[in-house]
Simulated assay, not measured.
Amino acid sequence: MNLTVPAGTAMGLVGRNGAGKSTLIKLLCRFYDPERGAILWDGTDIRTMDVAELRRRIGVTFQDYMTYDLSAAENIGIGDLPYREDLEHIRDSARLAGIDATLRGLPDGYETQLSRVHLDEEDGTPGVTLSGGQWQRVALARSLMRGDADLLILDEPSSGLDPEAEHEVHRTLGRHRLGRTALLVSHRLGALRDADAIAVLVDGRIAELGSHDELMALGGGHYARLFGLQAAGYAERGDRGRTTEAAT
């Protein structure tokens, strides 16, 4: 694999399950190092960089994000430890992720425990649980705490959201990442249409690389075929909906 992500651009990663997308992200975060070859950051091999310093420059939302038995504020604040008690900073990140109103509406607002395990010290009541989509927004807000991150990595950041919520999140993130380098992973190809370039991975190799329009122009390529399948699926569901409405 040979891939260059220019500073300040958004690169989309597309591929079937097992193609290597998550592996690439973990390599960038130095969860492990490549057995051969190198990953260069502005020409510097990241294996020579201090791990903590490297990760400080990265904001990432993983597909298998974590949920913690902590308060709402703490669940987001741990995304950037020096600011973990800065409620305004936490709320700014929550607004970007579209979860601020939900958290403010909890029984104790941002101080509400997002857990049914730990009981309130004063009255012994349990905390609350969030839906999968709400937890995903909390995880996204956690990664957005690092507003000065040089690299923003989003691995399926909206897989648990409904179409309307997904559209709003991607529109907000599009404004937020302007001027930042971003690596975007999604099986919903429509979410990547605005990326500066899209890399299509097949068995750990880059099979295609280009903008949405360039890849669609290839006709019979991997990306065009996958995009066509998804578009056809939406069209079929739309046809069924119109038929039902007409029958009603």
Rank of each mutant, 00 (worst) to 15 (best):
49 M>T: 08
175 R>S: 14
148 D>N: 11
49 M>Q: 06
102 T>Y: 03
105 G>K: 05
176 H>F: 15
86 D>G: 12
57 R>C: 14
55 R>H: 05
115 S>L: 02
75 N>I: 14
177 R>M: 13
167 H>M: 13
87 L>S: 08
89 H>M: 09
180 R>M: 08
152 L>M: 15
104 R>G: 11
50 D>E: 14
120 D>I: 09
66 M>L: 14
144 L>W: 00
109 G>S: 04
109 G>D: 04
161 L>A: 08
54 L>E: 00
123 D>T: 11
84 R>W: 06
67 T>I: 15
80 D>N: 04
124 G>I: 08
88 E>V: 10
87 L>W: 09
126 P>S: 14
107 P>E: 02
71 S>A: 12
180 R>T: 07
127 G>M: 10
186 S>I: 13
75 N>K: 13
77 G>I: 03
121 E>N: 13
73 A>Y: 04
67 T>C: 15
71 S>D: 08
147 G>H: 04
83 Y>V: 13
115 S>M: 01
133 G>E: 01
145 M>S: 00
102 T>R: 12
62 F>Y: 12
135 W>G: 09
85 E>K: 10
102 T>I: 15
119 L>N: 02
49 M>V: 11
75 N>H: 13
128 V>M: 07
71 S>I: 11
85 E>Y: 10
168 E>K: 12
167 H>L: 13
81 L>M: 12
155 D>I: 09
61 T>N: 10
117 V>P: 04
147 G>M: 13
141 A>C: 06
58 I>R: 03
118 H>T: 14
70 L>M: 15
138 V>G: 03
111 E>G: 07
113 Q>G: 03
54 L>K: 00
111 E>W: 01
128 V>K: 05
176 H>G: 05
150 D>R: 15
55 R>P: 02
85 E>I: 08
95 R>V: 11
145 M>G: 01
75 N>D: 14
156 E>A: 01
144 L>I: 09
52 A>N: 08
91 R>H: 07
105 G>P: 07
162 D>T: 07
89 H>G: 05
